[in-house]
Structures are given as C-alpha cells and as structure tokens.
C-alpha cells in the first residue's frame, strides 16, 4: 500500500479561544481529487488553512510525503509543494496580473507551470496581463488566483470555494481546467458548496459538520440521503 501524500490525524484548529476543528482525520493520495463539502462555517476553509500552514498545526500530526511536518508555516508548505487558492482570491491589488502570477513562483519550485502555460489555460488573461489585479471580472480574478497558486508548481493544490460568486458559465470554464492540472500529477482538494459539482469532479469526498468529519467516501458508494444528512445534520433532528 502506498503512503498518502498528505495526512492529518485528530487535527484541532483554533482561532484564538474559539475551536473550529475537532479531531479531524484527513488524507489524500498523490493521484486523487478530493472534494470537501459542508455548510457555511463548518470548518472547510479552516481545514485548508491548517493544511497550508496559515493556521498553526503546531504539535499536531501532519505527515507530508512520509515526513512529520506538524506546525509548518505557509511559506514552508508552499516550498514543500502545497499551494492554496485562498477563499476570496486575495489578489495583490497593487500588482499587475502578470506580477501576481510571478509572485506565485517566488518559492522557486520549478516544474511544468510557467507564465506561458498559465496564459495557455487561461487565455482570457493575456490581454489583461498589465492590468491591476483588482481591475478584472470575478472569473478572471479567480483564474489569476488559480494561476498564481499553480506557479508554485505544487504537488497538492488546495482550492477554496473557487466558484463562489461566479456565473455558472464561468464556473464551468474554470472546472474544465482542473483535469489539465491533474494531468501534471498534482493532487487536488476542492472546497465546494455545490454538492453536484463536488460529486462530479472528485474521486472521494469528505463532509464536515461543525468542525467534525461527518462522512467520507467515494461519490459512487454514497447515497444522496447520506450526504444530505452529513451536510445538514438532519439525523440528530430525526431521532
């Protein structure tokens, strides 16, 4: 059995005194696409931030490529090969589109993804390359955010709500690029509100409810009913 690319065991996460995650187990293999679903505030973003080092996992079990890396910082995670497309895109407003993309390569990891290849999968950005990051449509901003993360040539790409606030047509375009990213051997974690979208693109899903893992499995083996219960927690009400 091959070892997982990334694994966390009994992960807790805190914002100050507020505990957002309670003993979460999560793992992903190098050839997987995983979708994380759950209601607003369930802890999906918190999990991604913990994996990417934006929230400290100090003293906890986070195993990357077989090595114990609990408590790594964001810059260490990126340099090791974990890139995050943050919620809300978080482009650098005073940098141009091209500069935003180049900033993503700051960690110095070399690989398939270069400025030219990003412009190849997101041709809309070519004409806007000298625009400020903020002077773009929402979809284009999301493309820059994804491109910027890819510029780090990650082994694992974490995508937080990449369809948030975008028109369905744009969402479809962006999701069409995911197979292209997978082709380069990059594992994907996608946080998605839209359950159908999540089931369509993923090999496995995790459902988080109030900071705890409520369900995991492949789209094929999970029933609609199970997912709805895990998502909204209706089981407790029914009992």
């Amino acid at each position: 059995m091959s070892r997982p690319l990334l694994e966390v065991r009994r992960l807790d996460a805190f914002y100050g005194d507020f505990q957002a995650l309670f003993g979460l187990d999560f793992q992903i293999d190098a050839d997987e696409t995983i979708a994380i679903i759950g209601a607003n505030g369930a802890g999906k973003s918190t999990l991604l931030k913990s994996l990417a080092g934006l929230i400290s996992s100090k003293g906890q079990t986070l195993v990357w490529n077989g090595a114990e890396r609990g408590g790594w910082k964001a810059h260490e995670a990126v340099r090791s090969g974990v890139a995050l497309v943050p919620e809300g895109r978080r482009l650098f407003a005073s940098l141009s589109v091209e500069e935003n993309l180049k900033a993503g390569a700051y960690g110095g990891r070399k690989g398939y993804w270069t400025l030219e290849r990003i412009f190849e999968i997101f041709p809309d950005l070519v004409a806007k390359r000298n625009n400020p990051g903020s002077a773009l449509s929402g979809g284009q901003q999301q493309m820059v955010a994804i491109g910027r993360a890819l510029m780090a040539n990650p082994d694992l790409l974490l995508c937080d709500e990449i369809s948030l606030g975008l028109a369905p047509r744009i969402v479809k375009d962006i999701y069409l690029t995911l197979p292209r990213i997978r082709e380069q051997g990059t594992a994907l974690v996608i946080v998605e509100q839209d359950i159908n979208q999540a089931l369509a693109v993923s090999d496995r899903i995790y459902c988080i409810q109030e900071g705890r893992m409520s369900l995991t499995g492949t789209p094929a083996e999970l029933t609609r009913q199970q997912i709805v219960e895990a998502y909204f927690g209706v089981r407790e009400k029914a009992s």
């Binding site: 990417a52 080092g53 934006l54 910082k73 964001a74 810059h75 990126v78 340099r79 890139a83 995050l84 943050p86 978080r90 650098f92 407003a93 005073s94 940098l95 500069e99 180049k102 900033a103 993503g104 700051y106 960690g107 110095g108 990891r109 910027r148 993360a149 780090a152």
Partner: peptide
Amino acid sequence: RMLRATADDPETVGLMGANN
C-alpha cells in the same frame, strides 16, 4: 514585487512562499 505584495496583504504572501 514581494515587498509590494507584502504591503498589500502580509498574510497571503506566505502562500507565495515568502517568509515575512
């Protein structure tokens, strides 16, 4: 570029691999 990005958003530059 990283100095200007840091001025914009010091948290997100960590995701670029920059140590603040």
